[in-house]
Design a protein around this nucleic acid. Structure first.
Lengths: 238, 238
DNA sequence: CCGGATAAGTGAGTTTTATCACACCCGGCT
DNA sequence: AGCCGGGTGTGATAAAACTCACTTATCCGG
């Protein structure tokens, strides 16, 4: 229940921050509980906070006027997120939807700025974290544009398994119950297309369902399909 | 010829940096000349520098094993770029191709780190700059995924006009001679598709060619097609 | 145990986009 | 002039992806 990483779930937020710096961040944060279905912010809201997920899940999405929806990121335990592009006057361009009851740490950018000003080493680590987040977006960009919808789907399956997957022998279980629609929104495709692609993968014994959870049986096949470059799990994630 | 902005070309790199901080950056940079066709770095090279374009043009691209090519960014005068996600051990995931003879300022991350450590205000501005760069990528992501290839093309045309466009009365001239292939590589489409889309736009009097340069006559039409949200030019750029 | 809601699955038809093949144009070179 | 190379323009065709309409499965509450 703190900003430090716990051994129970090795924090995915990449280990950019040292325990001491996590403590500093904790010192300026306050806890906040949000229930599933609520939103931390909407497009257009002022972007003046960072969020740290102590427990729960938050998705960053984008909605268009014509009803389409895009899921950019899924954040979970120990992830840090928020828009940090100008420490004043900036507004969010995405929505943050709480998809599981969550406990969050909230950091006001105003406070963060002072902290960064005082602690050069924290500032440097912050920069690394920002660079990493950017890189996640850039590599996803490549994956989703270059290899068609099947390639895009493979990319998110790989990313899901890197971020949340549980190794069970040769198989990887993705412990999120994702609907076809949700997967579709991650790759900018339709539910039906996703359904057909998954059916095809199932037929070829690449993936499998158990209890409505996705199991990846042949990740190599997925990697080949999206020309995976085996980048580290800190970058190839949701 | 300096890192300061000059009034001759109002620097597009967003004005995140104060003149004093630009001077600090300049103090740790050294000049480097690169000729058109050369590369500043390739995928896999260690990412240990930042680059500032004093004069010239550099494109950040990604090539895939099956011959496809993607152009992520086009940087010009006064733009700052480089991978900054870990101040050691990081490698580039993209290529930096010099597309016009260029004069660059190079900053070693090693030196930058010390500077950031010492100057909290510079660190804070740096963070803003990084956030801005990330946001450019994120908004492009949306544009290229949600509105088909025509929407993607409109998005890059708008971005090109925001970054490099010259207003001529009602028209906007894009002073880069871009081939159909180059445009295609910016949106993950084929040359032929781009050609047909441009032909269609020409027929509808949305765009026009003069001297092989693109002129946008009806940017509103383009904005509608990609559901433009009129974000500021610092974000909606190439 | 039934009805309603939500998601999965699927077929048919259409639109979008890519592929292939080739003609044309134009500037530079010999 | 003639040729070459790189870029443009376009038709025919094929593949990819979306749309619509509908059936089936599953879960949950009464």
């Amino acid at each position: 229940m703190t900003l430090e990483s716990t051994s129970s779930h090795p924090h995915k937020n990449t280990g950019v921050f040292t325990p001491e710096n996590l403590m500093k961040l904790k010192s300026i944060s306050y806890e906040y509980s949000a229930s599933a279905g609520s939103y931390l912010y909407w497009e257009g809201d002022p972007a003046d906070k960072l969020f740290y997920i102590i427990e729960g899940q938050v998705r960053i999405t984008k909605a268009t006027d014509d009803g389409k929806q895009l899921t950019l990121y899924i954040f979970q335990n120990d992830d840090l997120f928020g828009q940090l592009d100008s420490l004043q006057d900036s507004t969010h361009s995405f929505n943050a939807e709480v998809t599981e009851d969550s406990i969050l740490g909230i950091i006001q950018l105003r406070d963060l700025e002072i902290l960064l000003w005082q602690h050069g080493d924290l500032a440097v680590e912050f920069m690394k974290w920002m660079g990493l987040m950017h890189r996640i977006t850039q590599t996803k960009f490549r994956d989703l544009l270059l290899f068609g919808k099947p390639g895009a789907l493979c990319s998110v399956l790989i990313r899901l398994s890197n971020s949340y997957g549980e190794q069970h022998g040769e198989h990887i279980l993705i412990p999120l119950r994702l609907t076809n629609t949700e997967l579709a929104e991650m790759i900018g495709a339709t539910r039906e297309s996703v359904n057909r692609m998954l059916a095809e993968f199932k037929k070829q014994d690449i993936i499998q369902y158990e209890d409505n959870l996705l199991i990846i049986k042949d990740i190599t096949y997925l990697r080949d399909l999206c020309h995976c470059e085996n980048c580290p799990g800190t970058i190839c994630r949701m």
